[in-house]
């Protein structure tokens, strides 16, 4: 099933299948290690539309909801 990174439940892991956005956006996201094929584990989501926190390649990354909802993962 394909869902966005924002929708992924805390504690669950997914594989990135698509990053929706322009060249600059993709570059920024990929630079942090979130690229197609990467295994991403959701750590938590902050309340009130706060950022989501994920672990990828042993790095912990905080990204805004808008950014997270443009990253599609397969679970």
């Amino acid at each position: 099933m394909e869902i966005t990174l924002a929708e992924l439940m805390p504690g669950k892991t997914g594989t990135v299948v698509r990053i929706m956005g322009g060249f600059g956006f993709r570059r920024r996201v990929e630079g942090m290690g979130i690229r197609e094929g990467a295994r991403v584990k959701k750590i938590s989501s902050q309340p009130f539309c706060g950022p989501v926190i994920v672990e990828v390649n042993r790095s912990c990354i905080a990204l805004g909801r808008g950014i997270a909802s443009r990253i599609i993962v397969e679970v």
Binding site: R28, P51, I61, G64, R65
Partner: peptide
Amino acid sequence: SPEIFLEVPP
């Protein structure tokens, strides 16, 4: 305002 996008160091 742009969204936060930040590596949280250990």
